[in-house]
Structure formats: C-alpha cells, structure tokens
Design a protein around this nucleic acid. Structure first.
Length: 268
DNA sequence: AAATTCTCCTGAAGGC
DNA sequence: TGCCTTCAGGAGAATT
C-alpha cells in the first residue's frame, strides 16, 4: 500500500523525532527482506542529519552516507518509546536515547540499504523519472513520453522511469478523475487529455497527503494512526458498485498484471 | 486476493 | 541475412 503519499506521511512523521539525534544502537531481527540488511554498527554514535524522500524511498542522511529505506508492499515505520516490546514482523530498528524508529513489514518486500555514494547515483534510484509533484512533471512531459511508447496509459503512469510514486491506487483514481480508460494505448491520447491527467495525478496525491495517506490494511503513521484517504477513493476497490459520478456499474479487470477498476461510461 | 518492484526470461521490432 | 539494442510482457520473490 505505501505509495508516494504514505511514504511522504512517514517522512514527515519521523523527521522531527530523529533529525539531529545520535543513534545509540541498531537492531536487525530479520535481515532477510528484499535484500539482506547490511551490517550497520557503524551508525552507532552517528547523527541523523535529515530525512528525505525520493520516489517511494526514504533517505536518512548521515555524515558518512545515506540509509535507504523502502516500505515495499506492507511496510510501516513507527516512533516508539525505547522500552516498547517488538511485535511480530518488527524486523529492524534504530534506537536513540529515549525513542526507537521501528520497521514492521509482514510481507518483507521492503528494503534497508546503505550507500556511501550520493543516493541519486544508487542503482535503485539512478534511473527514476521525475517526482510527480515537481514542476518537471506536467502534461507536456507526459505527452512526450506517451507518444513514443505502446503500453496502456495505466502502465505508463505506474512506470517509475516515467514518473515515480504513482501506484495502483492513485493511478486508478487519477484516470477516473481525468476521464481516461486505463487500458487505452498511451500513444492514442491527445495532449490536452494528458495535461488533464497530469493535473489529476498531482491533485489526488496532494489530497491523499493532506488526509494522511490511504490505509487499506497495513499502513500506519509513525504514531500508529491510519491514513484517512480511503474514504475519498471513488473507484479503487469498488468493482460492481455505482460510479459516484454517473451511477454506472464500476468494471474491473487486470491491466498489466494489476487489478484495474474503471467506469465504462465516464472513462474512454 | 494483493498495495511494491527488482531480476530474470522470452519474443518482437527497429536500426544499420 | 545477421547482430545489437530496445521494448513489452510474464513469472517469481514474502506473508497474512
């Protein structure tokens, strides 16, 4: 579930608690995430200089390198008192003098990596497209990318090389808001409609961040609260229900191996 | 059933 | 015809 809004909510939640603080201890309970968690004893005594985000990666900056975190499909970060007992699937934590930053990830698709090089040169981040909420991403850019590809528009906007952070939930919602069928070939959509799509991607991500993200099941904010944007979802997860705009029955099928819902009357 | 995305594989298509 | 590169799509990886 963590898409860009959930990762940004996590970043904003943990940054004030850990920035400027020195690590007292790092504990790895289960190193087998997507890739093995590397040895991190060298972090002890080091000060967190900042918490940044690139795509769905969280970047904890230290003087001698960057800790790269990814929440995968089911990960969440919490800030807790040091004495809090770990629970099932709490795989990794960074202890500070009076609190702990703890990663829980039942499905273990997340990642904890260390990079001494600038994070933007890391193989995982090197080939990523622009941030969707930046000025580098707009309708003209989307049009320039769409005209030279032959995939469904939904697959295009979920491709991190084109634009980062747009996962299944927000891609589904943005396409509904823009009135575009998710399976439409991306090269056969007008510039003006792609301008509208870029606008709606920005709008839905911004609204979701304002609501604390979307909690379907696993996602928690740093203090344990859920995100509330699930109440604002109009199409995602509503197959068979009435379209909120026209009342037609919402359809669903797989597009690019991902479940895709759309309104057959509002989206073309 | 499935929110993530890398890696590995196959096959098609384009450039020269 | 062949070689190389890019593009597209599928499977598998973990768990409740």
């Amino acid at each position: 579930m963590p898409e860009l809004p959930e990762v940004e909510i996590s970043r904003r939640g943990i940054a004030p608690h850990v920035t400027g603080r020195a690590v007292s201890r790092v504990i790895v309970r289960q190193a087998k995430l997507r890739w093995p968690i590397p040895p991190l004893e060298h972090l002890e005594g080091q000060v967190v200089r900042g918490v940044e985000r690139r795509a769905k990666y969280l970047l904890l900056q230290f003087d001698h390198g960057t800790l790269i975190l990814h929440l995968g499909m089911s990960g969440s970060l919490r800030v807790l008192p040091t004495a809090s007992p770990p629970q099932r699937h709490d795989h990794f934590e960074i202890q500070f003098d009076d609190l702990v930053l703890r990663l829980r990830d039942p499905r273990r698709f997340g990642a904890v990596l260390w990079s001494t090089d600038p994070p933007e040169t890391h193989p995982l981040l090197r080939d990523l497209g622009p941030e969707p909420l930046s000025e580098d991403f707009d309708g003209d850019y989307l049009y320039s990318q769409a005209r030279r590809r032959r995939v469904a528009i939904k697959s295009l906007i979920m491709d991190g090389r084109i634009v980062v952070g747009v996962g299944n939930i927000y891609a589904t919602e943005a396409l509904f808001l823009a009135g575009i069928h998710p399976a439409r070939s991306c090269a056969r959509i007008s510039r003006s409609r792609l301008v509208r799509l870029a606008e709606q991607i920005k709008a839905v991500l911004t609204a979701a961040i304002a609501q604390g993200g979307t909690t379907l099941r696993d996602f928690q904010r740093e203090d344990g609260r859920p995100g509330y944007f699930v109440q604002s979802l109009q199409i995602y997860g509503r197959a068979g229900q009435a379209c909120p705009r026209c009342g037609s029955s919402i359809k669903v099928r797989q597009i690019g191996q991902r479940t895709s819902a759309w309104c057959p009357r509002c989206q073309h």
